[in-house]
Design a protein around this nucleic acid. Structure first.
Lengths: 135, 135
DNA sequence: GTGTGTGTACTATGTAGTTCATACACTATA
DNA sequence: TATAGTGTATGAACTACATAGTACACACAC
C-alpha cells in the first residue's frame, strides 16, 4: 500500500481516452511536486480501485508511461517514478507545449490579433476557478 | 453549384469526429469573413465531394449546424448562412472561449505563473506557422 | 412527363478504440 | 504448501464513428 492522497475525486472527461488522462494526471503530479523522483506509485490494481477504473486501463496507462520513461518497473516490484532528471524536466515543457500549440493554432485560424489575445489570457487567468467542468 | 474556393486541401485529424471538424471549419470561415451572412453554401452532396467525405457525414454536419442556428434550410432550397447577427457575433466568442478555457485550465493544473504564461503565448504567436500538424 | 438536383431518412457494415473479464507467471510471506 | 500480492497477456464485449447503399418527397428546367 502506498500513499492514497490526491487520487480521489479525479474526474475524467468522456472525450479523451481514460488511460491518456491518467498519464496526464501523473505528469501534472510530477510537475507540481506531488510526486517525487524515485517515489513508489500505487500498483495497477490499487490505482484502479482508487480512480474507479478497470485494472487494465491502469495497466495501459502505466505501460504508456514506461514507454515515455516516466516510470520504471523492475521485475514484479512496485513501479517507481524515474530518477532521470532530464525526463522529469521535459515533462513540464511537454505539457506546456501541447496546450499552447493547440491554443495558438486555434486562435490563429480565427485571425485573432496578438494584443486582444494577451488581454484575454490575462483576464481568463485571473478569473475565479471555473470552466474546468467537462463531462 | 456554389463557389468552390477554400474547400480544397482541408485536412482532418483522426482525433475528433469529422462532422464536428466540418462544423468548426464553417465557424472559422464565418468568423474570418470567408463566408457571409445569407450566403448559399454547397449542397450536402457537393460538399462531400469537395471535402472527400461521405454525404452522410456532410449531412450530419449540416444538421448539427442547423441545430446551432448557424445555417437555415427552407424546403428543399439550398441551405444558407443565417442572417441572425446575434448568432454570428456569438460564434467568434464561442470559438475563443472554448480554446481559451481549455488552455487556461491546462496551465493552471501545472501551476504556471501568469507572467511566464503571457510571455509564452506572445512568443508562440510570433513564431512561424507550425505545430499545426496533428494526426 | 422526364432529368436532375435539392434536403431528408433509414438500415447495414466495417473499423478503431476503450474497457472488461479472465488467466498466467513470478515473488514474498505465513 | 498455500495465500496474497506483484506485473503481464489475451480475447471478448461494447461503443462511436464513418461509410455505403438505398429510398422518398419536392422543385425546377427541358
Amino acid at each position: 500500500m502506498t500513499n492514497e492522497e490526491g487520487w480521489k475525486d479525479v474526474a475524467f472527461n468522456s472525450r479523451d481516452p481514460v488511460y491518456l488522462q491518467v498519464v496526464r494526471l501523473f505528469m501534472e503530479k510530477l510537475v507540481t511536486g506531488r510526486l517525487a523522483a524515485g517515489q513508489v506509485i500505487p500498483s495497477r490494481r490499487e490505482l484502479a480501485s482508487l480512480l474507479k477504473i478497470n485494472p487494465n486501463t491502469a495497466q495501459k496507462a502505466y505501460k504508456e508511461m514506461e514507454e515515455r520513461r516516466l516510470i520504471v518497473t523492475e521485475g514484479n516490484a512496485p513501479s517507481r517514478v524515474t530518477e532521470d532528471a532530464g525526463v522529469l524536466r521535459g515533462i513540464r515543457a511537454a505539457l506546456v507545449e501541447e496546450a499552447a500549440d493547440e491554443f495558438i493554432a486555434a486562435v490563429r485560424r480565427i485571425g485573432m490579433p496578438a494584443d486582444e489575445l494577451i488581454e484575454l489570457v490575462r483576464r481568463k487567468y485571473d478569473e475565479r476557478q471555473g470552466g474546468g467542468a467537462h463531462d
